[in-house]
Design a protein around this nucleic acid. Structure first.
Length: 848
DNA sequence: AACGGTAATTTTTTT
DNA sequence: AATTACCGTT
């Protein structure tokens, strides 16, 4: 692509952001304003205009998926060869690679394990036990949250103890020993040659801070640094970026404070607001033209955000069609809500001839997905094949998968304590808790790993009986055998052998239940994934030997979303959090009720409420053309029915002029909801009576209440019934809060952000009206062109079908079994032979 | 040491 | 409702 072509595809603000590369830069990119386009074009621009090699550019993203997609888009601009060497990925993946190289400097082995959330929690649980603390008061999850928060703000155990605020906070929460747990936790991680997710950042920071040579090395390598989703970065991430860029000052960060929804996890909006304090020369660019949504959707989202006090003022606008008003859909029950949404999807689909994948159902919590799933699976609804639920228990978190991976981990890093505990008695080999506790005690006495103890039990005086010792020896020899050949055998071969020789296979085979079947399939899928990995590494020329360690270092930072195939034609069901960055022609935001959205946990704190409101902003701005906000008068939750449901306060925050209210079974207020062509056909009018929880008059009174007026408080909201709401973790505090390291005063920062050198002013007529930045197929596009090229696997695949797999090439389906998530196919591939594909994960096209 | 029953506990999530 | 933790039994 020529330079002119490249620039002609940008509006003037985007162009300025792309071409300014001479100093630090902050791009505030409103929802749908072409942020990804700016980042990709900027990288192409850098490669063309500066003496930079691809590996001189470091681009940090929030998810692996975002990195991959961006890389693909850049490859289209600059070619595969260049794009391939760009340093692009999440903070965690980029720095884990660097830490493996520099492991000596930071005092870890190169094959350190990465503990996931559940490993961390399990380690904490164990520490609580040894310390004799009650895990009812010290909930492992909240202890870990406290530790994680501390780490993200670079409060190591020694500094933690000295901090009065933190210590008194712990005392007031009845967890005064937290600092001790933290110190032990950190020590145990080190002993296990393991890092948790936070360590990947903290230790990177320490490495750069304490080793000037290494800091220079990487600051010199990464001559230009870009950070995406900057509003979601935390303190340590900001510090790392600073260490890398403080000299050359070639840095561009892109973010949107309106879309900051991860503060609960330590993300700091302050990073954006204080940006010019770290980079005084920084220039501010604002992208305010939204290319994604209709004018009314953008206006509604803006009107919502007027109710947040803390924000960088901005004026997001759209020049697309005015579009239709948002629909507020008030339903009788949660079940009816699901039914209404499904019908509405069908109606729009037949009316607009669009794809299933043009719809998204977004909710606050994963548990809300169930009702929609149940509704769609009803035969009379017939949508069972047309939806995909994201989130929930990830593939890598399933017990059987974690068990197998634990063996891998132990072989690659025998000091890995959590892996050791997982497999020492799986499959059961008669080594129980008593023995395990003895091993743990012995290990703690000598400050060594569990593996060290059982490798040389006599040296450390492990006190167990003869029989037990024999069992331990057996286990040692088994794992030791694999350790010995871990460098010489490739990952896949190792994997297969491990599953065989450790008895995992036998154990799984002995289970004849339905669940057992699914477990075997999951382990098969894991092996298939390994096979994929080994092949792709070889294709990339990463050498012939793809070791188990190589596989692990990648897989421990992978999530389900990374495997998901989003090219097939399905309705998306996901939490709003996971929908960030996506867009859909039609979006349903469901469960718009007090105590759900905003979440019960957030209603006590203004700060958290603002975050919930931003979350709704994110949800609404996912929509291109239609946006529905739905709620129900009664809802089943925690096995009980709540019939005192109040509509979400946020519904009142949206300008009523921009919404249409629909009450199930009632009259329409405002303009008709269905199109003019079919005014009589309102999907919820017919079998309305059949599913009503109450017969006779409506429990909430004869008149449906108006939402758009100021009538929300016609009934008290949940909190008002509570005598004294439980104190929240981040409950609003007195003025001394400003000194709390974990919550800096917002107002203060806002003032400082006033003296920006604003080079880019929004111009009312400045932007070129490019049609859309959307990668989503245009809904009016002929439904054959894009739907036919991509399979929707579990639908319609049958024996004899010829398929083209992304990696394995052409093959013929010999057998199809299982349904839904667990459906799998046996396929004979022309080149690679017979393989089993779990349709949930497989990527292929159907031929013929 | 393994299993099965009862009781308690429920945000959001990427890495 | 559904998952998980704990305790008692075998």
């Amino acid at each position: 692509m020529t330079e002119e072509e490249l620039l002609s595809q940008l509006n003037s603000n985007q162009r300025e952001a792309v071409t300014y590369c001479d100093g630090p830069q902050l791009v505030i990119a409103g929802a749908g304003s072409g942020k990804t386009r700016v980042l990709t074009y900027k990288i192409a621009w850098l490669l063309a205009h500066y003496e930079l090699k691809p590996w001189n550019i470091l681009a940090l993203t929030f998810t692996n998926k975002a990195a991959r997609e961006m890389k693909t888009r850049i490859a289209r601009l600059v070619g595969d060869e260049s794009a391939r060497y760009l340093q692009m990925g999440t903070f965690h993946s980029i720095f884990s690679h660097i830490l493996r190289v520099e492991h000596e400097a930071v005092g870890y082995g190169s094959d350190f394990t990465i503990y996931d959330e559940s490993d961390s929690r399990s380690l904490i649980k164990n520490i609580l036990k040894t310390m004799g603390l009650d895990d009812k008061t010290y909930k492992p999850a909240s202890v870990h949250a406290a530790i994680s928060m501390a780490k993200n703000h670079l409060y190591m155990p020694d500094r933690y103890v000295e901090d009065g605020d933190l210590m008194s906070r712990d005392r007031s929460r009845n967890m005064p020993e937290t600092y001790k747990i933290y110190a032990t936790y950190q020590q145990r991680l080190q002993q296990a040659n393991a890092m948790d997710f936070d360590d990947l950042l903290v230790i990177t920071f320490r490495m750069l801070r304490d080793h000037e040579d290494l800091r220079r090395k990487y600051a010199d390598r990464f001559k230009y640094v870009l950070v995406d989703e900057y509003q979601d970065t935390n303190y340590v991430q900001q510090r790392i970026v600073t260490l890398l860029t403080q000299e050359h000052q070639r840095i561009c960060v892109v973010g949107d404070d309106y879309q900051s929804i991860y503060a609960f996890r330590g993300a700091r909006i302050d990073n954006i607001l204080n940006y010019n304090r770290i980079y005084p020369e920084a220039k501010l660019f604002k992208l305010e033209q939204n290319y994604r949504s209709t004018q009314l959707i953008v206006a509604a989202a803006n009107s919502l955000m007027k109710h947040n006090a803390n924000q960088i003022p901005k004026d997001v606008f759209s020049k697309n069609d005015e579009g239709e008003k948002l629909t507020i859909l008030e339903n009788i029950s949660d079940k009816r809500e699901a039914a209404m949404v499904c019908r509405e999807i069908k109606r729009i689909k037949s009316q607009e001839h669009c794809h299933w994948s043009d719809f998204a159902i977004l909710y606050r919590t994963n548990a809300q997905s169930r009702l929609f799933e149940e509704e769609m699976r009803k035969p009379e609804v017939g949508m069972g094949q047309h939806y995909r639920i994201y989130g929930g228990l990830s593939f890598y978190q399933r017990k059987e998968v974690k068990d197998v991976i634990a063996y891998f981990r132990l072989i690659v890093n025998p000091d890995d304590e959590e892996a050791f505990r997982r497999v020492i008695n799986y499959p059961s080999r008669g080594i129980g808790n008593t023995t395990l506790q003895k091993i743990v005690d012995t290990a703690q006495q000598h400050s060594i790993s569990l593996w060290n103890v059982i490798s040389r039990p006599n040296d450390y005086g492990l006190d167990v009986n003869r029989g037990t010792m024999a069992k331990l020896d057996g286990f040692c020899a088994l794992v030791g055998g694999f350790i010995d050949k871990r460098f010489t055998t490739d990952a896949l071969t190792m994997g297969k052998e491990i599953i065989g020789k450790t008895g995992v296979n036998t154990d799984l085979a002995s289970d004849h239940t339905v669940e057992g079947d699914s477990r075997r399939q999951n382990v098969d899928a894991l092996l298939a994934g390994m096979s994929d990995f080994v092949e792709s590494q070889q294709e990339d020329g990463q050498g012939d030997h793809v070791s188990l360690a190589d596989y692990l270092s990648t897989v421990s930072l992978m999530t389900d979303l990374d495997n998901s195939d989003d090219s097939d034609d399905k309705i998306t069901l996901m939490t709003i959090h996971s929908a960030k960055g996506l867009e859909f022609p039609t979006v349903f935001v469901v469960g718009m009720e007090e105590n759900i959205f905003p979440s019960m946990m957030a209603v006590g704190s203004p700060k958290q409420l603002e975050e919930e409101r931003r979350l709704l902003y994110v949800a609404i701005t996912r929509a291109e053309r239609h946006c529905y906000l739905t709620w129900a008068h009664t809802r089943w939750q925690y096995g009980k029915m709540d019939s005192f449901v109040n509509p979400s306060r946020f519904l009142n925050d949206i300008d009523p002029k921009l919404t249409t209210l629909h009450v199930e079974g009632g009259r329409l207020s405002g303009r008709g909801f269905g199109s003019d062509e079919e005014p009589a056909r309102r999907p919820w009018d017919d079998d309305y009576e059949s599913d009503r929880p109450y017969t006779g008059s409506r429990p909430w009174g004869g008149e449906y209440r108006r939402l758009n007026g100021r009538m929300q408080n016609s009934r008290p909201i949940g909190g008002q019934f509570m005598a004294d709401p439980k104190p929240k973790e981040t409950a609003p505090r007195r003025p001394e809060q400003a000194t709390n390291p974990f919550s800096t005063s917002f107002e203060q920062k806002l003032k400082q952000s006033g003296n920006w050198k604003k080079v880019s002013q929004t111009m009312s007529n400045g932007g070129r009206a490019t049609s859309s930045t959307s990668p989503t197929p245009n809904p009016t596009m002929s439904s054959t062109s894009s739907a036919a090229s991509v399979s929707s696997p579990s639908a319609g695949i049958s024996e004899g079908q010829i398929i083209e797999h992304q990696r394995f090439g052409r093959g013929k389906v010999v057998k199809v079994e299982g349904v839904g998530e667990n459906a799998k196919a046996t396929v004979d591939f022309d080149t690679t032979g017979r393989k089993q594909l779990l349709l949930k994960f497989a990527r292929f096209n159907m031929i013929g």
